[in-house]
Design a protein around this nucleic acid. Structure first.
Lengths: 221, 221
DNA sequence: CGTACTCTTGATACGTGTCAACACCCGTGG
DNA sequence: CCACGGGTGTTGACACGTATCAAGAGTACG
């Protein structure tokens, strides 16, 4: 279990004793909101995304999950969560039974790390409300691209200023709350301004600082 | 401390030994995002709200806090939070030092309750992204009024179909990500349709079911 | 070689923001 | 007591951003 808890920052986990591991096809479900007593996963390879579907049929993507991310960590504290998680690409997952996280199984120090990782993740996630809700579509789009770009770069998935980008326009649109059509126009504008390139699942950020300005991010001039 | 932990559901806390208690004027700050090592509060009386201000100057109100709510409970796990909390009305707060929550001070059962309350609060809060981002202004407004109404009713603050409502238009607008002007129009429409009345800090919901329909809430026909 | 899906682009309608003016309420100070 | 001033809510005219609908090009895949 030490391995699991060590992974809760943003590093890759190492699967070991008593721990399952499986491959999930692109587009398949990893967790469904009607599940109860699910397991906690760690995404070893590939991408996933967490979303809800509203009564009116619209889908809100809350978060994209990258290799190394825990999947639905709060399940440790709550028996069910109102989200569904799908694999965005082919994904390799390792699984931990919830009972392995009981007080008897983990040290007080490990519990503390789990609490912190879980809370920090939710706080960051909640902050997205402000990032999205108070910006127009161009700013939102720039914000999404830039935050994925920076995260991927930090984790060593970048080659120069190029990062993998398996999202379709529908994913971008549903994450930002705009239509596919408009997402296309907005991305087109960012391209035409020479800020980014985006093709064949690869995103290139040509002028990071300018993109940050468009995104209205702090640290921008 | 048993009292504190018992209060973490949605009940009112009872202040006791070693616990501070103070009055906060309307509009004054309860917690500022640059604080470190703050205290955990429970809102005994009055309302408050939690928000962030973006680099572009726009304010996103994340949540309104009602009597009985813990204020920034996650401070137990994280040294600082990127939110500011202001009193919306005159507010009575009771205060707990963070060290009172250390492992030595509280039982394992109480720790568990805190973890659950903290996580559940953040999950609900994160869900607001979908509620807001995927709805138009009329639906958002109906949703906000209805969720406050139902919450207040559950906690016994209603007299019939009337609940206290100390929010100004600016609060509504900043919570929903629309302008004050437009919030006024939207509320006007809901009034004209006979769904609600709103005056002198009192909200009346005349036809709850119809309001739920407008809000696109589940449980609506 | 189709067939379905994704992306792009255009024309148009609608929702929301912006700016401005004004009414109203309320606290303040003359 | 009244006059003033600021904050808040309402309404109108207009501009702009985004959705909708439709068509077509590009791409993946059987």
């Amino acid at each position: 279990m030490a391995e699991v808890c060590g992974a809760l920052g943003k590093q890759t986990a190492i699967a070991r004793d008593g721990v399952g591991m499986y491959l999930c096809r692109k587009g398949r479900s990893i967790y469904h909101k009607d599940n109860v007593g699910g397991q906690v996963h760690i995404l070893r390879e590939g991408w996933a995304f967490r979303f809800t579907v509203l009564p009116n049929g619209r889908r809100q993507i809350m978060e994209f999950l990258l290799p190394g991310d825990p999947v639905l960590l709060p399940l440790i504290f709550l028996p069910r969560l109102p989200y569904t998680v799908h694999a965005l690409t082919e994904a390799m997952l390792c699984t931990f039974a919830l009972k392995d996280f009981s007080r008897q199984e983990v040290s007080s120090e490990a519990t503390r790390r789990i609490e912190i990782a879980c809370t920090a993740g939710l706080v960051r996630s909640e902050s997205r409300l402000a990032e999205i809700n108070q910006r127009n579509s161009q700013e939102r789009t720039a914000w999404l691209l830039l935050s994925l770009y920076k995260e991927l770069k930090e984790r060593g998935f970048a080659e120069g200023d190029v990062v993998p980008f398996p999202l379709s326009l529908a994913h971008v649109a549903d994450a930002l709350g705009i239509t596919v059509t408009h997402a296309s126009r907005t991305l087109g504008a960012l391209r035409r301004e020479g800020l980014i390139s985006l093709s064949r699942e690869r995103l290139t950020v040509h002028r990071e600082q300018d993109l940050a300005n468009v995104a209205l991010l702090p640290g921008a001039s």
